[in-house]
Design a binder for these strands. Sequence first.
DNA 1: CACACTATGTTGCAAATGCAACAACAAGGC
DNA 2: GCCTTGTTGTTGCATTTGCAACATAGTGTG
Lengths: 149, 149
Amino acid sequence: MQIQRNDAEKVLEENAHQAWIALQRVAPLLQERVDLELKRAGFPDLAAYSILWAIDRAGAPIRPRDLGVLLFLPRYKVSRQIDRLVDDGQVIKLKCPEDARGHLLELTASGRKLRKAMWDVYRPAIANVMSGITESEAAVLAKVLNRLA
Amino acid sequence: MQIQRNDAEKVLEENAHQAWIALQRVAPLLQERVDLELKRAGFPDLAAYSILWAIDRAGAPIRPRDLGVLLFLPRYKVSRQIDRLVDDGQVIKLKCPEDARGHLLELTASGRKLRKAMWDVYRPAIANVMSGITESEAAVLAKVLNRLA
DNA sequence: CACACTATGTTGCAAATGCAACAACAAGGC
DNA sequence: GCCTTGTTGTTGCATTTGCAACATAGTGTG
């Protein structure tokens, strides 16, 4: 019967829909929790941390363009985030010898210290918000999510 | 040895961390894709849709406060979203007999039509962004995510 | 070299956001 | 009744965001 086929299709699509709903609801919720922890410790937010992390991790001065690619951020977002971090003395812009348009970004001593201090709050905050699931579930979660990207 | 224990702990925490990273990266990415589909069709974004959906689904006029609870939104966000929808003629505010502060929100005919039209774009857009995983994976994904909330 | 084209980064502007303060009302105790 | 406390919804303000335009510089082609 036609009805049975439609019902079957509906059930099949339902899981994808439920997952979509859960994804859009849970991700911002957890982010808010972690951001709140950083805020309560007097630190910048996750967006700033990810910039500090990426520069630190690069091991050598890195260009804003590469930061954008690495962190999936639009140029203007990188540009303004960097501006704030430079104003706060966490990052310095070096002249880029290969391309007079760009800069090379480097952490200051203060910037490196800040990132480490933030990590000491960030790390347990992640563990905390993720504590509801087991490690093997987390592994599955990561695998499935990455396939969606 | 001490080192072995530390390594073991690190590996254990790694999955949670990977899942956290994936979650924060993939959720906004997919949302952006779906929002783009709605935009290209000339429709409001997902935030507006969720309001329309919640009012429609309630079956009876509903108060902004209840919308906030249902959609996990702060009051001011509901307030402004509603303002826009009222200005656009999609929603009307009725006087609330039980509480002179609040209103009862109702979709106009145009609002109902808009929600349906948006759903015709939204539904396949979800199916599209979720098409990378199987239905059973989606079921697991939803289950695990909901446990994090 | 001159030219068109692409890439990088910044900025003006309008819209959206978050916060805190606010007005208006409800609920409950006395 | 009156007063205190909590709730609901809105708004002023400063900050942030997204878009598009822009300036500047690299890239490639003839």
